[in-house]
Write a protein that binds this DNA or RNA. Structure first.
Length: 559
RNA sequence: UGCAGUGUAGCCUAACGGCAAGGCACUCGGCUCAUAACCGAGAAGAUGCGGGUGCAACUCCCGCCACUGCAACCA
């Protein structure tokens, strides 16, 4: 079995926020890191999603050519994800040549198989902006309620669904220009309705999917699939290889998921000996898992499968789709466009990546929307990372170094209490692995915590600071056991907090081989023997004090 | 308006139709190795509202209320 993992492609128009991270890239990374540690063959692929109107407009606002804009944004995003420890095997771009080529290929297959239709549609054209405007980029007065800032797709005041031509005094949201006209333009449509039965069959066969994923897919199918336009009057995108479509490109949602395959191809071509196609074509022995927030589910359960099914080619479809709900910021949405919430570059200025990784996974919106608040960020960082884990490491290593020096002490043999601890650890590691295999991230972090607590309970019962005065051999047993626990903690926690794990590997001077142990192997509490050297690292996690918390709340407007 | 999801204590979460559980916060005690941390004990406190089915309902069904999302040219 090989594991193919993709996370929803982050859009190019700016630095992503915590909500984007927690719903796709971060859980996918934890899962990928865990499986690699278990010595499974893993390919974790992601890319920036670069096409579409918002990218063109964002570029315009910054006064940059859109290709240049995307290049800069791509580099910024890639850098930030690297700082967060996201371990993509390849982080590609949908603007890459591989994606152009594959997208055109899929289109030609769909067309040859009769799933494409040409239609003339009327659209609003802005003479001053020199572009067609998507419905939501037109603002005007709602004919129903008189709200002056109604959008062309819907009036957010009275919630009535609108068409741009309904609006009174329509104007371009981009420039404010009222110099608009209706123009007819030729477009291609993907006939989803013709593929509906096949999609339904596929969806219904996925009985093991999370309930959220299944119900969103069924919602679309039950409402009846309609054909969907997959071309746009833009210049930035994948050109349409068809006569009469020279000035149009594919709709961003048509080419974005193809980007998963294209990024894999780019990975394959980067080094000799990589067989990218074996991951995607006739890949029955590959288990493919997709991670995404719920807004992406319709595209991954309906549109993207339609593209693959309609191609009549043996491309890999998702075996499992892990959908996430929203992480809300004080009751509302995180929003890139309205700059609401905490963005990834700011996050890294506030706390190390591992704190964010851990807290976000501990509060992952798995079964329902969950809330981000600064109090809920502070609590796990202080109580779980700093106190429970960090302090355990610090207390045992400092104690040992100051009393006995920087090597594991000799003497004694493990007894009943050590055997009991061993059993507890074995059970918890088994449970942790089970949760991670099932992608139950909240439960996995709870189990990690239980594992850390077990160490504190053990050291409290054994009290090596007292034994040290009465029975040095017994104290040595306890210390060796605790230092082996630290090694177990480092390895078991590594998928969540990889940077802290590295620090611990270094502190314990683990060999390359020892760093690559599975958590099951690391659960042996006698591996690091007497005489092994270690160093005392600085406290692993700094706490966030209440003053700092108040500062953050003031700065970010949390209330 | 339609569709989907959600609603459990001060807060966050858990419970195949079978004694509503855990964490945080709170109180008391222990320890003194450690980042005012750690360990133990304790108290209080909850299934949005109204019906229905069942021996038994947080769980299934109907209605209502509240919040969130989507409603196909934003992604």
């Amino acid at each position: 079995m090989r594991y193919l993992i993709t996370s929803a492609l982050p859009y190019i128009n700016g630095i992503k926020h915590l909500g984007n991270l927690v719903g796709s890239m971060l859980p996918a990374d934890v899962y990928a890191r865990f499986l690699r540690q278990e010595r499974e063959e893993v390919l974790y692929i992601c890319a920036t999603d670069e096409h579409g109107t918002p990218a063109e407009i964002a570029a315009l606002e910054e006064g940059l050519d859109v290709a240049e804009f995307c290049q800069r944004q791509y580099e910024r995003q890639a850098d930030i994800y690297q700082q967060f420890g996201l371990s993509f095997d390849h982080f590609g771009r949908t603007s890459a040549p591989e994606n152009h080529e594959l997208t055109q290929h899929f289109f030609q297959q769909l067309e040859a198989n009769g799933f494409i239709q040409e239609r003339d549609i009327s659209q609003i054209y802005s003479l001053d902006d020199q572009r067609f405007l998507p419905d939501r980029y037109i603002t005007g007065t709602c004919p129903h309620c008189g709200y002056e800032k109604a959008r062309g797709d819907q009036c957010e005041n009275c919630t009535k669904v609108l068409s741009p031509t309904d609006l009174l005094n329509p104007r371009s949201t981009i420039s404010g220009s009222t110099n608009l006209e209706v123009r007819t333009s030729k477009h291609i449509y993907l006939l989803l309705d013709k593929l509906s039965d096949e999609i339904r069959q596929w969806v219904e066969a996925q009985t093991h999917w999370p309930q959220l994923t299944q119900s969103i897919a069924m919602k679309w199918l039950n409402e009846g699939l309609q054909s969907r336009g997959i071309s746009r009057d833009l210049s930035w995108g994948v050109p349409i290889p068809k006569e009469g479509f020279e000035n149009k490109v594919f709709y961003v949602w048509f080419d974005a998921p193809i980007g998963y395959i294209a990024a894999t191809k780019a990975w394959g071509e980067a080094e000799p000996g990589r067989d990218w196609e074996s991951w995607w074509k006739n890949a029955e022995e590959v288990r493919y898992t997709q991670f995404m927030a719920k807004d992406n589910l319709p595209f991954h359960t309906i549109m993207w499968p339609a593209t693959i099914l309609g191609s009549r080619e043996p491309w890999k479809m998702a075996d499992y789709i892990k959908g996430f709900n929203w992480l809300n910021y004080y009751g509302g949405k995180f929003s890139t466009s309205s700059k609401r919430g905490v963005f990834l570059d700011q996050a890294l200025d506030i706390a190390p990546a591992d704190c964010w990784r851990y807290v976000l996974m501990a509060n992952a919106p798995e079964s329902s929307d969950s809330a981000f608040t600064w109090e809920q960020f502070q609590k796990p960082v202080n109580k779980e990372l700093a106190d429970n884990l960090g302090n355990f490491i610090n207390r045992i290593l400092k104690f040992t170094a100051s009393r006995l020096g920087n090597t594991l002490p000799e003497g004694g043999t493990p007894g009943d209490l050590e055997a009991e601890l061993q059993t507890t650890c074995d059970q918890l590691v088994k449970k942790l692995r089970d949760h991670l295999h099932k992608m139950e991230f909240r439960r996995a972090t709870e189990t990690l915590n239980a594992l850390w607590t077990a160490g504190n309970q053990y050291i409290d019962v054994r009290a090596p600071w007292a034994l040290f005065k009465t029975d040095k051999d017994e104290a040595a047993v306890v210390i060796r056991t605790c230092i082996n626990l630290i090694r177990l903690y480092a390895i078991a926690s590594a998928p969540f907090i990889p940077h802290a794990a590295e620090t611990l590997y270094d502190a314990l001077k683990l060999t390359d081989e020892e760093r690559h142990h599975t958590m099951t192997e690391a659960a042996n509490l006698t591996i690091l023997a007497a005489g092994r050297p270690f160093e005392v690292p600085a406290p692993l996690f700094q706490k966030l004090d209440d003053d700092r918390l108040a500062e953050l709340m003031a700065q970010f407007g949390g209330e």
